[in-house]
Amino acid sequence: MTVPSKVGVLGGGRMGAGIAHAFCTAGASVVVVERDEQAANAAYERVASNLAKSVERGTTDESLDALVARLSVSTDYADFAGSGLVVEAVPEDFDLKASALQAVEEQLDADAWLASNTSSLSVSELAEKLQRPERFCGLHFFNPVPASTLIEVVLGKQTSDELAEAARTWVADLGKTPVVVNDAPGFASSRLGVAIALEAMRMVEEGVASAEDIDAAMVLGYKHPTGPLKTTDIVGLDVRLGIAEYLAATLGPRFEPPQILRDKVARGELGRKTGKGFFDWS
């Protein structure tokens, strides 16, 4: 089962644009739906820019004109009609995602698939809000999507075997590797990644070493491509704080966010997107 001929993406921010890019280059027609016209236009520019870079780097044999011809943006959920798959990529808030997924499902045919790009929220609990929970799973893409080779396929309690197999195939068709996990707080990647990052933050807080040296220890000693604190800056300190709070509530105090993380978020030091986090990005 190859990627569906039409794929919808709800949300055209950094992650949504990356997801749209991935499916465009895999041959699907992609519609990105955003909250208003300004956001939709910005989403189009993000995806088109990513597609142009793929052409420049030679990672696709298609022309830019051919790729962007398969891309459209909208502010109307009705434009998801006819999609074989829609991937939700709105901010990491359970109520927001649940209501968005419900609104999308109303526009889809009964045989369409639906997925969430959640990095930590319960896929099974989101599925409980849907009419067809067996046709829903998690597809956790990683930032930046074009360069990442991993997608976490998260199976909820009611996810069908057919969808589980289809999702593995889609991921392979996107040129990425699927890691299949059963629904659990933080799945595999976020749970381990956040655990390492929180301990690194505590070490900075306690004066054990600088952020630069802690990251260097993981890059040089454990061959991590990027250290846990720089990764936190790239992901966003606010995003990491939200995930940590959710994991602390569901898995216990070992995931309690350190004060240094709370203080930086309160000061607006959110990482690369604001120019400062644990590192200076200005």
Rank of each mutant, 00 (worst) to 15 (best):
L237H: 08
A39H: 06
G277V: 02
L101I: 04
D111P: 03
L67I: 08
H224C: 07
L270C: 02
V104S: 08
V87S: 08
A52R: 15
A39V: 05
V55C: 07
E56K: 15
G193T: 02
A100P: 01
G13D: 10
A197D: 07
T118I: 01
E125S: 12
S210G: 14
H21Q: 15
D238Y: 12
D213T: 09
V87H: 01
G8K: 00
C24F: 00
F141E: 04
A127F: 03
A188H: 12
V219D: 03
D233Q: 08
D173W: 04
F23E: 01
K129M: 09
E206N: 14
L108A: 00
Y44V: 04
Y77V: 12
Y44N: 11
S116K: 01
V123H: 09
R240L: 15
D238K: 03
R262M: 11
M15N: 10
G175P: 00
K223T: 12
D93S: 09
L51D: 08
A197L: 10
A209M: 01
Q131L: 10
H224F: 14
S54D: 11
E165A: 15
F23T: 02
L126W: 06
G186S: 07
D183I: 02
D93F: 07
A69W: 09
G58T: 06
A127K: 06
A115Q: 01
P144W: 14
Q259K: 15
K176M: 10
A89S: 15
A98M: 05
R35E: 09
S63M: 04
L220P: 03
K6S: 13
L67W: 07
E152Q: 01
Q38T: 15
D36L: 02
L64N: 03
K176D: 05
M218I: 09
V31G: 09
L139Q: 01
L121R: 01
R132W: 03
Y44E: 13
A98I: 10
I234C: 00
K157R: 13
V219Y: 02
F279G: 02
W281V: 01
V73Y: 05
Y77A: 13
A69Y: 03
L139W: 11
F279H: 12
D263Y: 00
I243D: 08
A200Y: 09
A248E: 14
V47M: 05
V145C: 11
F279W: 05
V153A: 07
N41K: 15
G227W: 11
I214M: 06
Y77C: 02
V9C: 10
S189Y: 01
F23M: 03
I260K: 07
V219C: 06
A209H: 05
E125T: 13
L130M: 08
A188S: 13
F136S: 06
E165D: 13
V68I: 15
V68G: 08
V265K: 09
I196L: 14
A52H: 14
A78Y: 03
T149V: 14
G138L: 11
K157N: 11
V90A: 04
F94E: 09
L71K: 12
R46T: 01
V219R: 15
V3T: 13
I196F: 12
A200W: 07
K53V: 11
E37R: 10
D238A: 04
D76G: 04
V31K: 07
S122E: 05
A40E: 08
L198G: 05
